[in-house]
Design a binder for these strands. Structure first.
Lengths: 223, 223
DNA sequence: TGTACATCAGTGAACGCGCGTTCACTGATGTAC
DNA sequence: TGTACATCAGTGAACGCGCGTTCACTGATGTAC
């Protein structure tokens, strides 16, 4: 909201001047307020919303510009190309996913299967709530392997699960067995996420309780 | 090859006449030979190859026409629109997947976990060999729910696995428990397939034996 | 504090491109006599 | 068997469209004096 107030392009006459003056006075705004406030952040936001609305492969730069209220040339002051815009959203999405998994785990005692199942749950919930971003994060729309940052974030996210698995087995580090079990668990929630967002499974119709299913599978795969 | 010989557009002069005469004489060719032989089949083939090469969301009608050597208007004699072209490939792909699963199962004794694992293996192998078609079959590029044929084929494919699970438990029909277990197994191989084709997992680097992993998981989930 | 100047984020117009689909047509094929 | 005609698969040109990216530019902001 505050950023929007500093958007010079949407204002006219005295109102424009007045608000510019306010922006000048605010040290917080000073930092980001330049022409559009922080167009980069605004664009990332627009891209995220469009990726969600249309899917990662149907997103267009032009539409993001329209959404952010700038010309189609503006993004190129902040991003090299379309790929880089998508990558920014992917990285942010991956970080958010890891955050959700950590937050969910915290609510359960360390070393419990419930704690591990909770990370899986958070994963599926993320996919369900933000299928577009989820697809972007795990699909091939952007080539993750070209971005060290994305690779690092991916490893960090997988690490959240692996640490919980290691804790469950009372292991000080992530060994081959922890990796194998963790990977199996990841595979499971990943598959469920895709089946769900691709609408290949009607959970209600199949009379399946997701919570129960994740919990049961977690226990079976850790046994 | 035979269809190609009857393609009038690529031939000229006496050669053209001679081959037309051959086509006339052949009752097999008679059936399909009309201008292009069977353009529909040729287009489906071109679409399949392009979906594989570029991905389902990057396939274009124009390119399929170029590949099939016809004008961009030609497909519209056989398909309503682009969606219908993709749907044809998706249906054919789904049938092929079910076939592979059945064939793999057959090689193992009925009621064994090996037999069930074999269907999972066939699933992953299909995804790996034809990631483009796999994506088309399980993604949202075409809206499957609008096609009764696609829905039926999907159920048939899932049915291959469910029947094996029912046989394992010595059950005459697919009850809620068989459905739940079957679904868990499907979820697992589905997740693995996507992680693999989206290049999120380097199986070699992680030192994971896919065969062993599928077999082990199958046993754990059926236990 | 006021002024002259440098910076650089965002503009608006343009580019070349490939797309999906349509249209009136053409000409090879199949058929009736 | 030969001929006249109907059918209809495929043509080629065109359509309007939105795309990603570039360009020389403008004008608000920040800074040095």
């Amino acid at each position: 909201m505050l950023e929007m107030l500093t958007c010079q392009h949407c204002l006219h006459g005295s109102r424009k001047k007045r608000i510019t003056a306010i922006a000048r006075k605010s040290p917080v705004l000073r930092k980001t307020a330049y022409h559009h406030g922080d167009l980069r952040a605004q664009l990332v936001n627009a891209v995220r919303m469009l990726v969600e609305e249309k899917g990662p492969d149907r997103f267009s730069v032009s539409e993001a510009c329209r959404a952010a209220g700038v010309s189609t040339a503006a993004p190129y002051r902040h991003f090299r190309d379309k790929q880089e815009m998508l990558l920014a959203v992917a990285i942010e999405g991956m970080q958010r996913l890891a955050g959700r998994m950590r937050a969910s785990a915290k609510r359960h005692p360390t070393g419990s299967t419930a704690r591990i199942a909770a990370t899986g749950h958070a994963y599926v919930r993320f996919a369900t709530k933000e299928p577009g971003v989820f697809r972007l994060v795990f699909g091939l729309t952007v080539d993750h392997r070209k971005s060290d940052e994305m690779i690092a974030e991916g490893n960090r996210t997988f690490g959240v699960l692996l640490e919980e698995v290691a804790a469950y087995f009372n292991k000080p580090e992530i060994d081959a067995d922890v990796l194998r079990r963790g990977f199996a668990l990841w595979t499971f929630v990943h598959g469920f996420s895709f089946l769900k967002i691709d609408e290949k499974v009607d959970v209600v119709k199949m009379n399946i309780d997701i919570d129960e299913m994740i919990r049961e599978t977690t226990e079976r795969l850790l046994a």
